[in-house]
Design a protein around this nucleic acid. Structure first.
Length: 597
RNA sequence: GGCCCGGUAGUACAGUUGGUUAGUACGCCAGCCUGUCACGCUGGAGGUCAGGGGUUCGAGCCCCCUCCGGGUCGCCA
């Protein structure tokens, strides 16, 4: 039978004591972590979110009735204990425990709640599989490492609020039930009961609302905003996620970046005690791609891409010729000193790896002590090999990896290979936080599926001033006033200066293939608003989950989200999504034609 | 939608060429124990080998299908 508090008040958290507190009478409340029953003496580690404290039930101190009751305590029982905090001495000290020099001698206690044996051990040693952990997430969240993650996430959000408030930003909420906008991810839709056949959409981001807040004169806005995208999940992607969203008026890209560098500096100091040098490095998109094969380069290690198109342009090797003839390139990564790290089988496995990224193949040149080994030696002349050596600084002990293909494929495959090599060769320094801005993104991206240009960032992003006259004539070479913030190879945020001219916005819609009527239907409320004095404005948004993932050293954003979803976008704990009553469907004017078993 | 990896007591795993009653550790239950802290000792319970079908005298193991989880490509303005 659960007991009631009966007026007891907790005086302290379990682990918030020092030796100087010895002698105090305390009341602690928490969960029984471990029980060690010695017969006439029972030790329990009491756990709350601060940590552990050993509490002692002694048969010579407690009444027989109380001691017998203490013997029934099991893992995860909820206890309230009163007692005296005392020093442990000599052999009694546990050096492995933060509070190992202290313990509480229990004089009185209540069993506030009993617990069944949990399906897995509540401990950081527990290696239970993630599905089970997520089904019982409330137990998983009791584990110290999860508590640490969730508290760190809170810290990040708190620093954001504090910093942006100091910088005169205003936190404003925007709607969750809003209007579907095309041009982005797939929307989550919510049927309207009052308007048969009509739907709200959950926001992919507060983008248009924050722009309208600028027009409304709020000048500096921020919000810790839930966003929703109905796309497939990844280790760093959930269907509902959180952005730290900001927008500013009367600014250019540098102004937005500078305010955010202040935030990042503060954030890393207060969470990890890491000093970030500002201003942060800037890397133009084109250079990021050329050097790292990625628009979110991990700059903690080398292995940069080397363009050897010119070096091999007169080679008769058909793989090179075909790539160059169709407008592609030949690029290489030199894994210095890695020769001994690769067996023939492993080199071939790398070939399979790049095929994931649509590369037709991977050429390797292994410069071993007994000579250069490569499947393509017979296709190259001595001079060509010498030229490749020179261009890539290929020396004995190195392995060179070459991809010849369309540029997009070369960058994707070598960019990914670069990361894989760094991991295999252990080239990534831990405890290093490389932040940088990637700037001058292309305005447009050609979509094979849609057979038209699409906005790479979003349709409200301003082109660069110098490129405005190419908007219609040469869209492929228009750069945007868009920037991403990248941390250790992860895109943790991005933003842009927005279009604040109605005329330019309309040109943009046309360039994206919208008729004026379509643009009016989808975004009319925005262009209407732009008739009433929009200020120049821009902003950005951070992925709070990704930021928390890196700061806590996690490998998945699920580890920093209290109740995440699994790969098929369901929640193992609640069972969402699930069927609903026919009555509910009828009210929403929905006829369900297809049901899973 | 494609590709790769995985699913065996509550948990983590082992399980030989297809061959007796499917093991080990932790956890759990009971008993003993006044300084444990990975407590110890003694005893015990606990299995739809993910599900279905097939091959075989015989399947945890081989084959096929399905389900579930993870990673990833596509997708994610």
């Amino acid at each position: 039978m659960s007991e009631f508090l009966g007026g007891w008040k907790r005086t302290n958290y379990c682990a918030n004591f020092t030796k100087a507190d010895a002698g105090r009478e305390v009341t602690l409340m928490g969960w029984a972590n471990v029980r060690r029953d010695l017969g006439a003496l029972v030790f329990v580690q009491l756990r709350d979110r601060s940590g552990l404290m050993q509490v002692v039930f002694n048969s010579t101190i407690l009444s027989k009735e109380d001691f017998d009751r203490a013997c029934t305590i099991r893992s995860e029982f909820v206890l309230a204990i009163k007692g005296k905090l005392v020093l442990r001495t000599g052999e009694m000290v546990n050096a492995n425990m933060a509070t190992g020099e202290l313990e509480v001698i229990v004089s009185e206690f209540k069993i506030l709640s009993k617990s069944e044996t949990p399906p897995f051990e509540i401990s950081d040693d527990c290696r239970a599989n993630e599905l089970l952990r997520l089904k019982y997430r409330y137990l998983d969240l009791r584990r110290p490492s999860m508590q640490k993650n969730i508290l760190m996430r809170h810290k990040i959000a708190f620093v954001a609020r504090e910093y942006f408030d100091e910088q005169n930003f205003v936190e404003i909420e925007t709607p969750i039930l809003t209007k579907s906008t095309p041009e982005g991810a797939r929307d989550y839709l919510v049927p309207s009961r009052v308007h048969p056949g009509k739907f709200y959409a959950l926001p992919q981001s507060p983008q248009l609302f924050k722009q309208l807040l600028m027009l409304a004169g709020y000048d500096r806005y921020f919000q810790i905003a839930r966003c929703f995208r109905d796309e497939d999940l990844r280790a760093d992607r959930q269907p509902d996620f959180t952005q730290i969203d900001i927008e500013m008026s009367f600014v250019e890209a540098e102004d937005v970046q500078s305010v955010n560098e202040g935030f990042l500096k503060r954030l890393f100091k207060e969470t990890l005690n890491v000093d970030i040098e500002t201003p942060l490095p800037r890397l133009k998109y084109a250079e990021a791609m050329a050097r790292y094969g990625s628009d979110k380069p991990d700059t903690r290690f080398g292995l940069e891409l080397i363009d050897i198109s010119d070096v091999v342009k007169s080679s008769e090797f058909s793989v090179f010729q075909n790539a160059l003839a169709s407008g592609g390139s030949v690029r290489a990564v030199n894994a210095k000193g890695a020769s001994a790290s690769f067996s023939r089988k492993e080199l071939d496995a790398m070939g399979e790896f790049v095929k994931t990224y649509r590369a037709k193949g991977l050429i390797w040149m292994n410069d071993k002590a007994d000579g250069l080994a490569s499947p393509i030696l017979k296709f190259l002349t001595e001079d060509e090999i010498a030229a490749i050596r020179k261009a890539t600084n290929l020396e004995e002990g190195d392995v060179l990896f070459i991809v010849a293909d369309a540029n997009k494929t070369v960058f994707a495959s070598l960019g990914a290979l670069r990361l894989k090599l760094a991991e295999k060769l252990d080239l990534i320094p831990k405890d290093k936080y490389n932040l940088l801005w990637v700037t001058e993104f292309p305005q447009f991206e050609w979509s094979e599926e849609e057979n038209r240009y699409m906005a790479m960032h979003h349709p409200f992003t301003s082109p660069m001033d110098d490129d405005l006259d190419r908007l219609e004539s040469d869209p492929a070479n228009v750069r945007a006033k868009a920037y991403d913030i990248v941390l250790n190879g992860v895109e943790i945020g991005g933003g842009s200066i927005r279009i604040h001219s109605m005329e330019l916005q309309k040109r943009m819609f046309r360039a994206l293939g919208f008729t004026d009527e379509q643009a009016e239907y989808r975004f009319g409320f925005l262009t209407d608003a732009f008739r009433y004095g929009p200020p120049p404005h821009g902003g950005m948004a951070y992925g709070l989950d990704r930021l928390a993932m890196i700061i806590t050293g996690s490998t998945s954003i699920r580890d920093v989200i209290a109740f995440p979803k699994v790969q098929n976008a369901s929640c193992p704990m609640t069972g969402a999504p699930d069927f609903v009553d026919d009555k509910q469907l009828a009210e929403l004017h929905i006829a369900c034609t297809e049901k899973e078993e």
